[in-house]
Design a binder for these strands. Structure first.
Lengths: 116, 116
DNA sequence: ACTATAGTTAGCTTTATGGCTAACCAATCA
DNA sequence: TGATTGGTTAGCCATAAAGCTAACTATAGT
């Protein structure tokens, strides 16, 4: 499961809508198609993309194909974002500590200077 | 700031690398370009895309352009993902409760049947 | 003033994306 | 068995994406 493909899959509003729909439970291709003014084959393409990104799985029984969300893929993306946030938050913390340190030095310098 | 564009921006490994670099602090276009075997104009395009997605901001002073991360954009995406997760987790909870209920009914039916 | 540096613009190619129609299976249902 | 439903394949088109080179602009350094 590649981050590239997951992000790519989520960059399309139709596909995000499908993902959102699947959060509420499994659905057949037909059910997924209903809300969209789009030819079936076009929608199928989206489903395929979602599948190959790992966000969705599907299985055919009889003539209907049921699709379901693969939540691990979403979790992976969330994980990546959280990791980045952690990095810049740590950086901001260090920055803040540094600023604090500067302020203290400023004060102590002031104390040294004043008595002059 | 459009979810479409943010996800789209993050779907490219070069751009994700730039974002990761910027988590460690501001950088000029030149600095950002160094790690990549890519012509400058190509890299500039990526930066433009990151800017128009709202993930990165940049300002030119003199002849160097400094780029910085716009963390709100990342936060928005994280928010979207978290929202989806909440929905399917709630659904799973309901499902679990339902299964529990079924089990209890099963037991109570068993009690009713056994004495027969 | 001259040169080197840091970006930028313009324009080209190749490949991928998102949509369509039309024709085609394959499982139900009558 | 014949029609209907649900999905699938194939192939077309327009636009956008990701890369390149070459030529240009504007600031800094000498």
């Amino acid at each position: 499961m590649q981050l590239d493909h997951v992000f790519g899959a989520l960059s399309d509003p139709t596909r995000r809508a499908i993902v959102m729909r699947l959060c509420d439970g499994e659905a057949s291709v037909g059910e997924l198609a209903k809300p969209f003014e789009m030819a079936l084959p076009s929608l199928m393409k989206h489903i395929r993309i979602l599948e190959s990104s790992g966000l969705v799985a599907s299985e055919k029984s009889g003539r209907v194909r049921m699709c379901s969300l693969q939540t691990e893929a979403l979790a992976t993306v969330e994980g990546w974002l959280a990791a980045q946030r952690e990095i810049w938050e740590q950086r901001l913390d260090r920055l803040e500590m540094y600023v604090e340190k500067l302020k203290k030095e400023e004060k102590s310098n002031a104390r040294k200077r004043k008595p002059k």
